[in-house]
Simulated scan of single mutants.
Amino acid sequence: MSVVDHNAIELPRISEAEVGDYLALLKPRVMSLVIFTALVGLVIAPGHIHPILAFTSILCIAVGAGASGALNMAYEGDIDALMSRTANRPIPRGRITREEATAFGLILAFFSVMTLGILVNWLAGGLLAFTIFFYVVIYTMLLKRWTAQNIVIGGAAGALPPVVAWAAATGSLSMEPVLLFLIIFFWTPPHFWALALFRSDDYARAGIPMLPVVAGPDATRLQILLYTVVLVAIAVAPWPLGYFDAIYGITSLVLGAGMMALAINVYRRREGTEALRATRRLFAFSILYLFALFATLLLEVVVRGVMALIG
């Protein structure tokens, strides 16, 4: 008669996850930027969208971004544990398993895309599905661990939310959302490479081929400067082309001058604490730059509305 060794029986793991752990999977800081840029795309779009559909659109885009974050963390749990910046995320801490995060992300992705497609329109739903696919499969799985150009190509996913929102509002696409896409797309490399310069040890430890790790800090500083030149030119261009008004144009010139000055400073300062301080300043200002640029577009809508009422 055999004796059952109860100590050898593997009991189902009881999840320790709390609501805060699942919220952390959504990458709330990234989600806040997605919501804001999508809101701008929605508000500046021509025509009228019902407030309930507008709210639904922004909610679906936000949930889709959260799904992307959860699936990204599920796939990168191993490298997150090696980096001080990400070691406190729920999966490295053992609060949530990679399987739980994957299931959570897939459910959010499915319902966000289907809800947007059914309730708003399928162009927006299809674009949201492509955005999630691009971030999770193209960037996270195929690019991030294999090429130093990961953040350049992968930046397309972060640049798509205003395009999705425009499609939700109009059912079509035009040059304005393409311009918003290009601004975010060319903003992404100098923003993240500035971060990578003062976090290069983290990326090297995790084996991620970020540009400072592969090409060195000096080559990265040059690339930051070159991309900033392109960014500033693209950000100013909608004004003389007649797509955005003077308030935006003047603001983009002032903010662009600030970005250029800080990028030049990063290029020139290459040693010691001064170099570190320069990269941190550029990283911090780049967030302000994008926020202020898009906020100005909202301001233009308000000004046009007020002028219409007065007229």
Rank of each mutant, 00 (worst) to 15 (best):
residue 241 L to K: 08
residue 26 L to R: 03
residue 251 T to A: 15
residue 56 T to D: 05
residue 138 I to S: 06
residue 149 Q to Y: 14
residue 84 S to V: 05
residue 94 G to D: 01
residue 68 S to T: 12
residue 215 A to I: 00
residue 38 A to E: 02
residue 256 G to F: 07
residue 291 F to Q: 08
residue 209 P to K: 10
residue 250 I to L: 13
residue 243 Y to S: 07
residue 192 F to R: 02
residue 32 S to Q: 02
residue 23 L to W: 12
residue 169 A to E: 13
residue 286 S to V: 10
residue 96 I to L: 10
residue 12 P to N: 06
residue 16 E to N: 14
residue 73 M to W: 09
residue 1 M to Q: 01
residue 23 L to P: 04
residue 171 G to T: 14
residue 92 P to N: 07
residue 207 G to A: 03
residue 202 D to G: 06
residue 36 F to E: 00
residue 194 A to C: 06
residue 10 E to R: 06
residue 281 R to H: 04
residue 43 V to N: 10
residue 156 A to D: 10
residue 166 W to N: 11
residue 100 E to F: 06
residue 88 N to I: 05
residue 237 A to D: 12
residue 122 W to M: 04
residue 248 Y to K: 04
residue 51 P to T: 10
residue 86 T to F: 04
residue 225 L to N: 04
residue 270 R to L: 00
residue 68 S to K: 02
residue 162 P to L: 03
residue 60 C to T: 13
residue 45 A to W: 12
residue 243 Y to C: 02
residue 47 G to N: 14
residue 124 A to D: 06
residue 83 M to V: 07
residue 140 T to H: 03
residue 259 M to A: 05
residue 27 K to N: 06
residue 40 V to I: 10
residue 107 I to Y: 03
residue 237 A to K: 02
residue 38 A to S: 15
residue 221 R to T: 07
residue 144 K to A: 07
residue 133 F to L: 14
residue 40 V to G: 03
residue 266 V to D: 04
residue 17 A to L: 07
residue 85 R to P: 01
residue 294 F to M: 08
residue 23 L to R: 09
residue 189 P to S: 11
residue 289 Y to K: 02
residue 30 V to D: 01
residue 275 A to T: 07
residue 113 V to A: 03
residue 297 L to I: 14
residue 55 F to G: 13
residue 238 P to Y: 07
residue 166 W to M: 14
residue 136 V to M: 05
residue 57 S to I: 08
residue 24 A to E: 11
residue 153 I to V: 15
residue 198 F to D: 06
residue 48 H to V: 14
residue 247 I to D: 07
residue 102 T to V: 00
residue 252 S to N: 09
residue 12 P to H: 05
residue 10 E to W: 00
residue 181 F to Y: 13
residue 148 A to P: 02
residue 1 M to T: 00
residue 204 A to M: 11
residue 196 A to C: 10
residue 211 L to M: 14
residue 45 A to L: 06
residue 69 G to S: 13
residue 299 L to C: 14
residue 9 I to D: 01
residue 195 L to K: 09
residue 159 A to H: 12
residue 35 I to A: 12
residue 99 E to Y: 08
residue 183 I to P: 08
residue 191 H to Q: 09
residue 201 D to N: 12
residue 7 N to S: 15
residue 235 A to W: 03
residue 222 L to I: 14
residue 292 A to Q: 07
residue 168 A to Q: 11
residue 72 N to G: 07
residue 64 G to L: 09
residue 202 D to V: 09
residue 250 I to F: 10
residue 151 I to G: 11
residue 251 T to Q: 12
residue 40 V to A: 02
residue 217 P to K: 09
residue 58 I to Q: 06
residue 287 I to K: 00
residue 238 P to E: 09
residue 249 G to Y: 13
residue 229 V to S: 02
residue 175 M to H: 00
residue 308 A to N: 13
residue 211 L to W: 10
residue 235 A to T: 15
residue 120 V to N: 13
residue 116 L to P: 04
residue 109 A to N: 05
residue 305 G to A: 11
residue 130 F to T: 04
residue 303 V to Q: 04
residue 153 I to F: 11
residue 145 R to I: 06
residue 158 G to Y: 13
residue 288 L to Q: 12
residue 249 G to R: 05
residue 43 V to I: 15
residue 180 L to M: 14
residue 241 L to F: 14
residue 272 G to F: 10
residue 234 I to H: 10
residue 43 V to S: 03
residue 239 W to K: 09
residue 5 D to G: 01
residue 289 Y to F: 15
residue 137 V to I: 15
residue 239 W to D: 11
residue 277 R to C: 01
residue 148 A to E: 10
residue 295 A to P: 01
residue 250 I to Y: 12
residue 228 T to P: 08
